[in-house]
Design a protein around this nucleic acid. Sequence first.
DNA 1: ACTGGTATTGAGAGCGCTCCCAACACGACT
DNA 2: AGTCGTGTTGGGAGCGCTCTCAATACCAGT
Lengths: 339, 339
Amino acid sequence: MALTLEQIAKLAGVSRSTVSRVVNDDPNVRDEVRQRVWRVIRETGYQPHAAARSLVTRRTQIIGVIIPESVTTLFTDPFFSLLLAGITAACNENRYHLMLSLFNSPEGSDAIYQRVLRSAYLDGVIVASATGDDPLIPRLLRDSIPFVLVGRHLDKRVTYVDVDNVSGARMATEHLIRLGHKRIATVTGPMSMLSAQDRLTGYKQALEAHGLPVDSSLIAEGDYREGGGIAAVRRLLPASPTAIFVASDVMAVGVLKALRQEGREVPGDIAITSFDDLPVATAVQPALTTVRQPIDDLGRTAVQLLLDLIHRPPDATSVPQRLVLPTELVVRGSCGARR
Amino acid sequence: MALTLEQIAKLAGVSRSTVSRVVNDDPNVRDEVRQRVWRVIRETGYQPHAAARSLVTRRTQIIGVIIPESVTTLFTDPFFSLLLAGITAACNENRYHLMLSLFNSPEGSDAIYQRVLRSAYLDGVIVASATGDDPLIPRLLRDSIPFVLVGRHLDKRVTYVDVDNVSGARMATEHLIRLGHKRIATVTGPMSMLSAQDRLTGYKQALEAHGLPVDSSLIAEGDYREGGGIAAVRRLLPASPTAIFVASDVMAVGVLKALRQEGREVPGDIAITSFDDLPVATAVQPALTTVRQPIDDLGRTAVQLLLDLIHRPPDATSVPQRLVLPTELVVRGSCGARR
DNA sequence: ACTGGTATTGAGAGCGCTCCCAACACGACT
DNA sequence: AGTCGTGTTGGGAGCGCTCTCAATACCAGT
């Protein structure tokens, strides 16, 4: 059976309270006693019972990562793996635990919300790239559960960390402009997501900054998935673009595939730039010129912001933090800059 | 503040015990009372406090997924995303929660083990593809923590679910043999992993079954990562194979890349088959002929086995379950069967 | 009316921990 | 010698829940 504080106390010849002090690094313990207690703890392999502790401290040392219903289908995108890796690393460093919730259950997201968030399991949550109007956000605000969004949000009460999608997209598009392209199309993400809107904004800014017209026949909405890239190409080709800025690597894979099927050469006939710099970007042929986002940082920063929120004294009123991380363009073969 | 049982009891005009019975579906409650209590619960949005409940039931309704240190570098492999998706779906269906632990921390896996597994946070754990000699397994056995392995294990006390790596690899190799190849090389996974050993065994079985020699110059060890595939090709080419069975899709991407660099055509000069059928298999050109494994099933089955283990009465002695799921060959372009 | 059985309910104890407060020892100061 | 402060320790209460057991109500059968 698992040991309790009481038993450790008996073994060390002190009281329950003293052992508790030792375990929690309370300075009010004589050094000699502290040593003795630690020795017993080490020898017995004692570990405090998490639930008992949580019951009184009202803290679980667990944070949740929520993949909202609206994006569970994107979960296999390596973006989420990398994000999770960053988040878990930061959690480990801070001795926090991570609970993963995909809101992908037939019971409905309301029921999951109740079960996961209202039962005091979690000290706080990180919400991964929700759509702008995800019903989750108002609920979290209403229940005053500490949370951080990965991806920006319009509500001023929301703390978030995002990558600079606008300037990333602008760079990717300007790169094509510099290469002499005039008819530059774009495949966007699902417009319900702010990241998709931002990348489209960056694309438009680049065109406008260089006096090029924004032509709606050169804009096709995708879904951040491969199939969306394929479908978008079919809609775009009649407008005869000479280059395409694709709003994600995964869609770019689809675009590449579709173009190949149509007999178009990349970058010879059509140049491509995209966004994310996932491992797949170098797996395809030609390798993708793409915008790198610091996904690992994104995860680590989200954890840091959340822990700040959790440890903030409840009366402290302060403005929610909003961080935007920089992006960078990685030039490879698909844009035709190197030939 | 969050409500307690006691408050609900007062509101419904019954005792704490009765509310507890209602919440836990105890049949010994008059229907009229049950209705009344449920109504109050619904109206107030009451949710039992998880820690308080855990403290007495000794159950947390949380299961852990552990990615051992030996494979954390593979975590971005979409295999893990798909596995996690299957696991979370099964968890949601069973009203369990999922705690994700990557043993990737500088504090060392011993410390994480203590922190995560000895504090009674978890009802049980799923260990994802450990190496054969991962020190985690004996510790879990010693501490009698219910656990299920994804991937087989030699110890007879271990419950696991695996895919049929041997017969999958045999199919992939035999397919090449049927296409007339005689000099078939293989790029293996890291030989510390049983799945890698099994896939190599399948490869050898296929050769032997068709009277072909097993030539060690045609066998190169990889690491299940892209770089390993690239490096393996350089070691393999001097032996002039006409076909290669690559033990994972991700490595196959590397192999494709390296062959292209060496000016070899796939499948013209060298035919390729691989293993996994991840999304990337259809992203590359030519698309990979590969062995599909039912990853989603793997995750769901692991959860099912674990829950069986958790709910088994402690005195029930029974033989650990070992399940092996079938694989299937998906023929695409890289093997040259379709031209 | 009395007995026994069954269905339903409430009260008390206790899970293992933290936190508050009182108790104590000890030295320093008046 | 008495008082105070400081450092250290132990005991009690209580977090919100479940579980056991006793109490009560009600019915049927005698």
